[in-house]
Design a binder for these strands. Structure first.
Length: 800
RNA sequence: GCGGGCGUGGUGGAAUGGCAGACACGUUGGUCUUAGGAGCCAAUGCCUUGCGCGUGUGGGUUCAAGUCCCACCGCCCGCACCA
């Protein structure tokens, strides 16, 4: 069959659309399948080839599931708030609303040209008032529960974008948006108390089916550690210095303390510190360092000893010095540590530099050379002496601390609360009113959405305040509680807000009473399979699990984990093997590929190019190879003769159906396609196939290359769509061959092959093997020591 | 530094401990052709062509190792002074 994809692609896309065959049914007795892909940020650059790969896997799975009789929800939408659009608006003066609408239109056209089987009736746009109304609603619920709060703290701040960044957005000390160095700044900011859910987020991982590396990354990000808090009494101050340690059993080895430069006690007891000047100088130096410098330049420890205040080791009673050093962070634990130089390399380096005593309390290693972090008998440790098990000694020390009231068991997380506001325009307004009398007052639910006012100038304020702060009619309002004059919060939510719950809105996207109807939620949740990028594993995936678990605790959603299964695609690299980037000029535009080869070739090539989970370079020649394959596939229609089964092909068909069916579930698209190629080669060798076989192949290939399959389906006189036909079945008993070729080894080396019936017994197999000429030559004059027979695979004759 | 992953032909990549290199690209030759950057057919791991060698290197377990174990080398990813 000859076909012109520039005609047939469009023809079938239009027909699918008109027939509405990809629309999910809300009231159905069928088994449901909710497939979710990460919705795109509609940038001006249009779709990236990576988007196609990210959606292709569940596209194939969804199409297969529909053919298997499932009621499938496979939605798409747009995560459209955010800085790139706003920056573009600043540059061009075009309103972000306009920019967003244009970009969404462009993305939609591009997505449709690939032939994705999305349910286009459920498209959502996070910047629409009907959507962000509910984002604000969830925020207010969090505010009510004390999970959204304001606090003054040192935050990651991007001086170039003029925004506060969350930890997740400033990984590596670089701004995630513009890649400038992030600095630490004390600011009054909004937080979401995600740490409250740290344990739940961790425990929930045990019951979900996420790829192991995804789970592990989340576990590491949450970073739970167990240990103890200890309160050291101070000389020269009227309170204790609280520290966190994972090794309270090394307390006898503590010879000094270290506080972070930002530690509040330093300010509080400023007038009791003799060397305030030196301290201020040091703090000044630290504050100028970027987060990057502070964490990267680990070699040389710096610090200043506090004169006038010292601490007392609670077990030895010795007075020990307190230092300020930036190797201790305010953001983790209590911002102060007990230093055990014998058993912690950082403390060891610091002690060496400042000439502090080093007391070994665990036997082993050579502490004159480096700290010893291994296990061993406790020494120099009073009541712990002789204990060799870390667990025991820690438990004993914690019991002692608790008994004496100077400390207690404790848990710490690396994960920090989520800095939640941005001083920018293009985001959801935070629905809070600041009243001089009542404090922070939520905007009443019935006034939601709190709309973004129209602006013409989107530049952030010079003092780093949101552009919204300039709009007086927005800022000035009356307090919903007391009716007095009040001012609105002018910060907006970060980009990650809207995407934290979008998968719930797909379930009921047009509801104006609730974020989604409860019955529909009960039916569709959880998401059965979620695919996305590894880069979102520590941000979006954690945030959205958090929001979801919050809603679960409110009783708003039915099950406690939102995503039953999560997988991730690997990057598509440029043809040169490097990451695609405009500056390298190695970017492949999916639209170009569609223009030249059609949508099916693009779809199949992306799934065939390599292991779906691995980064794989693009190859133009590989695309041509797939084009050849699809043309050969279409050419099969010329070989169709008769109906029924071709005996020589029967078992190959069953094997291929079996392999494709299972490979799709394991995201092994490359081998699924390879199996179809193999069958194709076999059919071409044979010279003909039946109409029934052609129809089987067409259905089997339909999820991958639906346009050409529909065209073939129609040309063979079928009514309806291949896309809605039944998924082919296979008969297990017909996947096994009657005869098999098995390998014959002598001493483990291949010396020949023999053909046997599949159920041949051991004696038959060895008789046949020994009869083989080549094999016999290697057996001559040797005695057989052992005979191994693996049915259908090989025989191995061990001789001496 | 810690955690995870990966090293297989000229290339992308296949291989529940059981015939390494499926499938594809590329290359070479042939065929058809006015033409070939189209199609079709064939060959294609390497070499010193043989009891030959071969999955980063060296060892080990096993009748049998790309696969399991130990050590090392290299690359990629994540986290990173986390107390």
């Amino acid at each position: 069959m000859r076909y012109d994809f520039s005609v047939t692609d469009k023809k079938w896309q239009d027909r699918w659309d008109a027939a509405g065959i990809f629309k999910a049914q809300d009231n159905s007795d069928k088994k449901k399948f909710y497939a979710l892909v990460e919705f795109p940020y509609p940038s001006g650059a249009g779709m990236h080839i990576g988007h196609i790969k990210a959606y292709s896997s569940l596209e194939v799975v969804s199409r297969k599931r529909r053919m298997q009789g499932y009621n499938v929800l496979f939605p798409i939408g747009f995560d459209a708030f955010g800085l790139p659009t706003e920056n573009y608006a600043i540059k061009t003066g075009i309103h972000p609303r306009q920019v967003t609408d244009n970009n969404i239109k462009h993305f939609t056209e591009q997505l449709k040209k690939v032939g994705f089987s999305f349910d286009w009736d459920r498209v959502i746009d996070t910047t629409e008032e009907s959507y962000y109304k509910w984002t604000q609603w969830i925020f207010l619920k969090m505010f009510e529960k004390g999970l959204a709060f304001r606090d003054t703290a040192f935050v990651n701040y991007c001086p170039s974008c003029k925004v506060v960044l969350s930890n997740e957005d400033s990984q590596g000390g670089k701004c995630d948006i513009c890649h400038s160095d992030v600095i630490q700044k004390s600011k009054d900011v909004w937080y979401l108390r995600i740490t409250e859910y740290a344990d739940k987020l961790l425990e929930g991982l045990e019951k979900v089916d996420y790829l192991p590396n995804i789970k592990l990354q989340q576990v590491n990000w949450i970073g739970k550690s167990t240990g103890a808090f200890v309160n050291f009494s101070l000389k020269g101050a009227d309170e204790t210095l609280r520290i966190y340690t994972t090794r309270p059993d090394t307390l006898f080895g503590v010879t000094f303390m270290v506080m972070a430069p930002e530690h509040p006690l330093l300010e509080k007891y400023r007038n009791r510190i003799a060397n305030v000047k030196a301290l201020d100088d040091y703090k000044e130096i630290c504050s100028k360092k970027t987060e990057f410098e502070r964490t990267q330049l680990v070699k040389d420890k710096t610090g200043v000893r506090i004169e006038g205040i010292s601490a007392v080791n609670p077990v030895s009673g010795k007075e020990i010095p307190i230092f300020v050093s930036d190797y201790v962070m305010m953001g983790y634990g209590t911002g102060a540590i007990m230093a055990v130089p014998a058993h912690d390399q950082r403390d060891w380096e610091f002690a060496h530099k400042f000439g502090i005593d080093i007391i070994q309390v665990i036997e082993g290693g050579d502490i004159s050379k480096e700290a010893y972090a291994g296990d061993g008998n406790m020494i120099n440790s009073g009541f712990l002496n002789g204990l060799s098990n870390k667990k025991d000694s820690i438990a004993r020390m914690i019991a002692y601390l608790e008994e004496k009231g100077i400390g207690e068991k404790g848990v710490q997380f690396k994960m920090k609360d989520w800095a939640f506001n941005r001083q920018r325009y293009w985001g959801e307004p935070i629905p809070i009113v600041h009243c001089p009398k009542c404090g922070m007052v939520p905007v009443p639910y019935d006034e939601l959405p709190l709309r973004l006012p129209k602006l013409t100038n989107f530049e952030p304020g010079q003092g780093g305040e949101s552009p919204l702060a300039r709009i007086e009619e927005f800022v000035n309002c009356s307090c919903p509680k007391c009716g007095g004059k009040a001012k609105r919060e002018t910060d907006t939510m970060p980009q990650w807000a809207g995407s934290s719950w979008y998968f719930l809105r797909y379930i009921d996207p047009h509801n104006d009473k609730v974020f989604a109807d409860r019955q529909k939620l009960d039916y569709w949740l959880p998401v059965d399979w979620y695919n996305g990028g590894m880069e979102h594993v520590t941000r979006h995936l954690i945030y959205s699990r958090f929001w979801y678990k919050f809603l679960y605790d409110l009783g708003e959603v039915p099950v406690d984990e939102p995503y039953a299964k999560r997988t991730a695609q690997g990057l598509i690299l440029g043809p040169d093997g490097d990451k695609m980037s405009k500056s390298k000029g190695n970017v492949v535009d999916p639209s170009d590929v569609i223009k030249v080869y059609g949508a099916d070739v693009l779809r199949v090539y992306i799934l065939f190019m390599g292991d779906y989970g691995a980064a794989t370079p693009w190859s133009d020649n590989g695309v041509k190879g797939v084009k050849r394959f699809i043309d050969r596939f279409a050419g099969l229609t010329d070989l169709v003769k008769g109906t029924g089964v071709t005996p020589e092909l029967e078992s190959s068909f069953h094997k291929t159906v079996k392999k494709v069916t299972s490979d799709i579930e394991e995201l092994k698209f490359n081998t699924a396609i390879a199996a179809m190629m193999t069958l194709l080669n076999e059919i071409y060798d044979k010279g003909s196939l039946t109409k029934d076989e052609m129809l089987t192949l067409t259905r089997l290939f339909c999820p991958f290359a639906p346009h050409i399959c529909e065209e073939i389906w129609e040309s063979l006189g079928q009514t309806g769509f291949a896309s809605t036909a039944e998924w082919p079945e296979y008969d297990e008993s017909k996947t096994v061959d009657a005869t098999v070729e098995i390998a014959v080894q002598v001493n483990g080396k291949l010396r020949g092959t023999v053909t046997l019936s599949a159920d041949a017994d051991k004696d038959t197999a060895f008789a046949a093997a020994r009869a083989n000429e080549k094999v016999a030559a290697f057996l001559e004059g040797k005695t057989t020591v052992k005979e191994i027979y693996v049915p259908k695979k090989l025989v191995n004759i061990v001789v001496k």
